[in-house]
Design a protein around this nucleic acid. Structure first.
Lengths: 257, 257
DNA sequence: TTTCATTGTGTTGATATGACACAATGAATA
DNA sequence: TATTCATTGTGTCATATCAACACAATGAAA
């Protein structure tokens, strides 16, 4: 994959290396102190924050583009990334990030330049372990930070809409896809897993009913260990049964009709 | 929207009017004599059948492109079309329809022509009333026909994979989206609706349990009329309560967690 | 030693689901 | 005209699932 020396270089040569008109936006969710977070970038000299995004190299699978973008911002590899929607309104590019950003940076995008045209955006979402991530900014950004899902800043373009759609998808997927493997440490307690579910669903769940239901999926292994050094009763530790977890990822959890 | 006078014209001027690299493929399901059918095109001088597809005009919303393609093949308007996946492997275009088709037709696609490059494909599916459709071929096709889902012909490129993905999506959507409004006539009987579900799921359902469950969704209106002129006991007619049907389409049928 | 928030493990009643039975209908048949 | 019979309408029952709730066990903090 080609390297770009500067923004100007990117502007000039990007069109040769990227698919025109196609962009990827990643909604990267993290979980910390019982809050659902999302990773956002603050582009230089532009009002509002942006989802980590990018373009598709000519010879690259779009799933790999999403993985690459995720890795560039988080350093994480081999994370489950789910396609959730394609945003294809012709209006969404009117105040496109690129045009606005370059203009404010004093660079006018030449007529006919690859970045000046319309882009559709393919949305991917990921769930990552907050603790393992060191957010990394890119060249056109001045910050890359986690934001609480309930206290979001203003977002550029239609990125607010994209984020909400990802959140809705995540919530509905929760009923028929296992969740937690990349979000929680290797060993975790039942209350920790429950907090994750409550946070994603934004809803309080009954402790006992939750345990019964999640255990019925058969994707957890109860360990002999207990979490030590915590106040109150020591909770048992669990880990995911990876074989069953991945099978559930493929086949789903519900029985359907 | 521009008109194209010939295939050659399409080849030459299409690049000016369509988004490069982006295509739409529609999986159009129909229901007839208790069989689930899918509408396929037979491109001239090409081995294998193809899903109805097309490209996105520069100023066009991708949802409208899908509607337009659906309408061109079926004459139907205002049908629910659902995005289900984006197929974005760089390899899928290697033996692309366009290149192959034009070559066999004796026209070599010039180097750099818009149709010669890589395309991602956005998949949409629709459920339409078989009876209302008069399949219409396009310029590059010699046939447009319904095919039984269980007796499919060989398909070009990755269209077999696209079709299977659409079918899987349709089946899972069945548990939390109402289905049938565009597929059945205005008034229909309970057994007819059940056959539709059985056909989509490829599974036999219990008559009495089906009735109980489908009625519990509250999207049906039981009419005073009965179907006349049929052998055996006359079944009652039902129709969809459109307000509740559309609410269910938006909010889903399941309770979630 | 006592306190107390938290965890482990139940129970109960309401509801949903799967399996199944029987009477009613009405065109086809004798 | 009476009988047949596939099909429809409407149930029941046993079981599984789900929401709501209670109580004992734990172990750090007071």
């Amino acid at each position: 994959m080609p390297e770009f020396k500067s923004i100007k270089d990117y502007l000039e040569r990007g069109g040769k290396h990227f698919m025109p008109g196609v962009s990827i936006d990643c909604v990267i969710f993290g979980f910390h102190t019982n809050l659902l977070k999302v990773l956002l970038l603050k582009p230089k000299k532009v009002e509002g924050w942006a989802l980590p995004g990018g373009f598709v190299y000519n010879e690259e699978h779009i799933d790999n583009s999403a993985q690459r973008i995720l890795c560039e911002r988080t350093g994480l590899h081999d994370i489950f990334l789910g396609q959730f929607y394609v945003f294809g309104s012709p209006l969404r590019s009117e105040k496109s990030l690129s045009v606005e950003a370059f203009k404010k940076a004093g660079i006018d995008i030449p007529k006919g330049n690859w970045l000046g045209g319309r882009f559709i955006s393919i949305g991917y979402y990921a769930l990552v372990d907050f603790e393992n991530v060191i957010p990394a900014i890119d060249r056109i950004s001045e910050a890359c930070e986690w934001w609480d899902i309930h206290r979001l800043p203003a977002l550029i373009m239609d990125h607010g809409e994209i984020l909400q759609k990802a959140l809705m998808t995540l919530r509905t997927h929760l009923s028929y896809q296992p969740v937690g493997y990349n979000l929680l440490p290797q060993k975790f307690t039942m209350p920790e897993l429950q907090k994750l579910y409550e946070t994603i669903l934004d809803e309080k769940l009954d402790r006992r009913n939750f345990q019964r239901k999640i255990l019925s999926y058969g994707i957890l292994k109860k360990l002999k260990e207990q979490r030590k050094g915590v106040a109150h009763k020591a909770p048992f530790l669990y880990s995911f049964d990876l074989r069953k977890y991945h099978r559930a990822l493929k086949e789903g959890l519900q029985n359907g009709w």
